[in-house]
Design a protein around this nucleic acid. Structure first.
Lengths: 101, 101
DNA sequence: TAGAGGGCTCTATTTTATAGAGTTATAATA
DNA sequence: TATTATAACTCTATAAAATAGAGCCCTCTA
């Protein structure tokens, strides 16, 4: 049991349910469209865009822009970094509640 | 795969690293003092008190006040509700990243 | 009933999330 | 090559939440 518990070392990206939801969707899909995420999460453009940006800045997801039927479409997908971050968070949370800290 | 993903159903209590840390400490200890939590987490009185209040309001933890060596001491411990909430969160997070949603 | 001190509440400040309007970028078409 | 259309983004303002710290309150002992 360590003397102090530096909780700020816990990945802050997961400190948000909407980002958790986005990561969950991307972890269990190939590539998904912005519009799909928006519809599924019932999120507004601005809010969803802001959270996607945070996830991109963290390099947990990437964006690929295409044109389909004359319309711009943004596809998002999980990176390896993102997948590792998810695994880390999962095992961290498991350890938090099973092991001594 | 559901049509929508109501991410607001995810327990918001866990949307905070400091609360996660408090729950973790309580889950792996019997009863702990306010001063211990404060020292261990390097938190300020006000901030720690506010988060403990949220956890108490959610009935995840309880407080027991005693006097030891003339000094007031607050002991905190996890409730059954709290333990169940932790288990739910754990399995939810596991499912989020392993199953389809 | 006065004194002491831990832990709380309260207030102010900072940070973060959210909503929605408006802009931007690109491909097809004329 | 200029125009048009539109999804997705950026930007701005608002709301909500976390944080810090000063000071109060409560219960003990003497």
């Amino acid at each position: 049991m360590a003397d102090t518990f530096d909780y700020k070392k816990i990945d802050g990206i997961f400190e948000s349910r909407i980002r958790l939801a986005v990561l969950s969707i991307l972890a269990t899909s190939e590539k998904v469209e912005f519009a799909y995420l928006k519809r599924k999460l019932k999120a507004t453009d601005g809010n969803l865009g802001a959270h996607l940006k945070k996830l991109e800045d963290a390099k947990y997801i990437k964006c690929e822009k295409k044109f389909i039927k004359r319309k711009p479409v943004s596809f998002y997908y999980l990176t390896n970094t993102g997948r590792k971050a998810i695994e880390s968070y999962l095992s961290l949370v498991e350890n938090l509640f099973n092991n001594a800290e």
